[in-house]
Every structure is written in C-alpha cells, then in structure tokens.
C-alpha cells in the first residue's frame, strides 16, 4: 500500500535490519486501542452478518404470504401467534408480519443498496479524480467544474430529482446514490493525487517510460487511499441515511423490497394510534447501524489522520 513503486524493481536482498510491522498491522493495533471503536466494530459485524444471513436465521419469511396470518395483525411485542404459537418478540405489523424478520430482511436491502452504491461511487469517483489530477489543465478544470456544480446542491435534492423522474426501484436508488456520491470521492482523490503527482517516485516511474495508465493506477492511486477511506466511512453512513430517507418519502425502494426506511414509513401511519413498534423497532435498527458505522469511522479517521482534532 505504501510502496507501490517497488513493484517494478526487484526487492533488495539480505535481511531487514529492523522488524517493522506492516501498515495494516499497525493500523489494527492503533484502532483496537479505543474500546468504544471496538464495540462499534463488533456491533457492525453483527449487523452485517444478520443482513447477509437473514434468509437463514429469520424466524419467518416476511414476504411469503403463506406464512402470514391476518389473525396475527398488530400484535404487541412479546405476544404469540394464534396459529403457530410462534412468539413475536418485536410484535407484528398490521398484516401479521413478524417484525424481527421484517427488520432482518430490511437491513439486508438497506445495506445492500449502501454497499453497492458505495463501491460504484468510489470506483467512478477515483478513476475520474485520478485522471483529473494526473492530466491537469483543461481536463482537470472541466471535471472539477462539474464536481463543484454538483456539490453546490444538497444531495437529497439531486437524489429526489432523479427518483422523481426515474420512478421507484432498487436499481434506481443505487443509481441515484452513485450520482450523488461520486463527486465527493473524485474531489478527495484529486486533491491528494495532485500533491502526490509532484513527488519523485512519479518522476521515476515516468522516466521508466511506464504508461500513463500504469502510473495512475499502480503508483499514484495507492498513495491516495487513506483520505479515500476517511471519506468513505463518512459517506457510507450518509448513504444508508439517504436511502432510508428516500424510501421513507416514498420515492426509494419498491414496496415489494422494503428497506428499513420503508418499514418505518409503513409503520408511521400507526404511530399516532399507539402501535409504536411497527416503525420504532426498524428505526432503532437503522440508528444502531448508523451509530456503529460512525464509531468505527471516527476511529479510522483518527488513526489515519493524526493531525485532525475532534
């Protein structure tokens, strides 16, 4: 990660005098020195596992109508099913759907949307950012104009515009999130790549007559990764919150694939009549996810950027 330039030069022979931990090891040790961050990481891993294995561990398939009974509709947390005798620890919604299962499936969709959009946005943003920084000049100023233009509008507004025109759908939400987020990564990568570009190892790579593409992605890019990770930790929580908001507003995921945001929206109508559990428990799941990511992200930020205070 630190020494990308060596991949074309044979490593020097002989024993290494001082044993230095790999950057990954050093990073892990520093990260673990903060117990709150470790708690956040454990919580996040747990949530991710629940999301991945939801179909295997959920007490019920909440979208298999054969398993639902309208008789069980609107049960309070802890009550049991009239038919199967199954206990609904977090109650049921008006259609008799077990909220524990619904939340597990909802998490799955929320995290899936966030993860895919994060991956795509990072990839697109990085390629564009590195290209802008490496070539500079007109290409650079053109790309950065677009980035500035986009960042001058609130993300939620842009996402709403897109979804209002495109309609609902998991793929469309992902597209909207990618379009909203790529600019942050492009700007981050560009600003660190512009500093790195002037360093000697890039000149060295150039004098070896390596191709532009190789220098950009094998030499320049690896050295721009730390700030990228910092931005990504902030953006992933933002992506989850934004998806939830869009789904809550009714322009996000379709009713057949409800994310946490849509579950909350569905239960919202019953909040005033006292059936708080239909929307509050999915909300708590959403909040725990976001808090876990923030705890991890804050620590990552501190470790990667020691100068940053607060």
């Amino acid at each position: 990660m630190t020494d990308a330039a060596t991949d074309d030069i044979p490593a020097p022979d002989g024993p290494v005098a001082v044993k230095i931990d790999s950057p990954a090891k050093r990073f892990a040790r520093e990260f673990a020195s903060d117990p709150i961050a470790v708690v956040g990481l454990i919580l996040f891993v747990l949530i991710a596992l629940i999301a991945i294995f939801a179909p295997l561990i959920a007490p019920q398939d909440p979208y298999d109508l054969a398993q639902l009974s309208i008789m069980d509709g609107g049960l309070q947390p802890g009550e049991s099913s009239f038919g199967t005798g199954m206990t609904f620890w977090l109650g049921t919604d008006t259609q008799g759907r077990d909220m524990v299962s619904a939340i597990m499936y909802g998490l799955r969709i929320s995290l899936f949307v966030a993860a895919v959009s994060l991956g795509l946005a990072i990839t697109i943003g990085t390629v564009i950012g590195v290209t802008a920084a490496y070539f500079g000049g007109k290409i650079d100023s053109f790309i950065m104009r677009i980035v500035d233009l986009q960042l001058s509008f609130p993300a939620i507004l842009i996402a709403l515009i897109l979804l209002a025109l495109l309609g609902r759908g998991v793929d469309k939400v992902i597209l909207a999130l990618v379009i909203v987020q790529w600019a942050y990564y492009a700007r981050t990568v560009r600003s660190s790549a512009i500093v790195e570009r002037r360093k000697d190892y890039i000149d060295a790579a150039r004098s070896l007559a390596l191709s532009d593409r190789r220098i950009m992605f094998r030499h320049l890019l690896p050295n721009c990764v730390p700030p990228l990770i910092v931005v990504a930790t902030v953006q992933i929580a933002q992506a989850i919150a934004l998806e939830a908001t869009l789904s809550f507003l009714g322009v996000g995921v379709p009713i057949t694939e409800p994310s946490l945001g849509l579950l909350i929206a569905n239960g919202y109508d019953y909040l005033l009549s006292g059936r708080y559990w239909i929307s509050i428990f999915p909300g708590i799941a959403l909040v725990l996810t976001i808090i876990a990511i923030n705890l991890v992200g804050d620590r990552v930020r501190d470790v990667l950027n020691p100068r940053l205070d607060t």
Partner: peptide, 22 residues
C-alpha cells in the same frame, strides 16, 4: 451533536412526535 447529524432527519422528527405529541 454526533447523533444530531448522523441520524436521519425523518427519524428524529418521528421521535419528537412520539415523545411530545403521542
């Protein structure tokens, strides 16, 4: 303040309704 800007806006609003209105 961390909760204030990391939790989704609509969720904060719902909690306000739940506490102060319901």
């Amino acid at each position: 303040s961390i909760l204030g800007f990391s939790l989704p806006n609509f969720w904060q609003g719902m909690l306000l309704i739940l506490i102060f209105a319901v």
